[in-house]
Design a binder for these strands. Sequence first.
DNA 1: CCATGACATCGATGGATGTCAATTTATGGG
DNA 2: CCCATAAATTGACATCCATCGATGTCATGG
Lengths: 119, 119
Amino acid sequence: MSFIEIQTAPAGPADAACCAPATRGAIGPEAAEKLARSLKALADPARLRLVSMVAAHADAEACVCDLTEPLGLSQPTVSHHLRVLVEAGLLTRDKRGTWAYYRLVPGALDSLAALLVAV
Amino acid sequence: MSFIEIQTAPAGPADAACCAPATRGAIGPEAAEKLARSLKALADPARLRLVSMVAAHADAEACVCDLTEPLGLSQPTVSHHLRVLVEAGLLTRDKRGTWAYYRLVPGALDSLAALLVAV
DNA sequence: CCATGACATCGATGGATGTCAATTTATGGG
DNA sequence: CCCATAAATTGACATCCATCGATGTCATGG
């Protein structure tokens, strides 16, 4: 994984008053972009509840029909949110016959949290 | 802080076919709303970089003028992002004379990450 | 007392996003 | 072969959000 890529700069001379160069040990623009994409996928009440509901469901998997009614959202909307979560690498989709089963990707949330504290 | 409020339910009986009740040990709607607000504040490349730059700056504090140029955004835009971060409880603002100094709130990122893995 | 610099707020605009209704695809049963 | 159900996709619409320019406020210095 490791999107950490510290942007090292020579640590310029200390400025007398204000306005030092900044961005010494800070996160790089592309790493920020990547992390923001992952966080944006989770930064929605419906999607947080979906992740939580999938994780708490029996066998840790659930189909759309399990999730539509308790969320209070229409089926296409739930499907859309699930798609966003799958594209963000947080859930996996497994279509078996009529139903599509969603599962939590094992270490996804943990590595995201780890990146967060390292920002 | 502690927005942890897990919504505990009696853990209903396993359903035979599909469509179990769901939302057993899942996060509640209002907890999801609150967490989503915090995550949304961070789910932006500019704000992630701002948090990182403030944390990496000398004395762990920085004024707006330190941050505008390396971010490549205008001063009002940077000010807006900093305001969002302050309102989310991630940064503190301390106006001393001409300059406004921003600092990272000590445990903010960590407790956010802890909430994330507990979703 | 006015000029300047740092910062915040306001207003406008373009783009992203959440939502639903309608349609489409696919599976399974009669 | 046709119908019913489950899901995904599409299209349309409303809302939110990031960004910028203009303006306002406060402190400092000539």
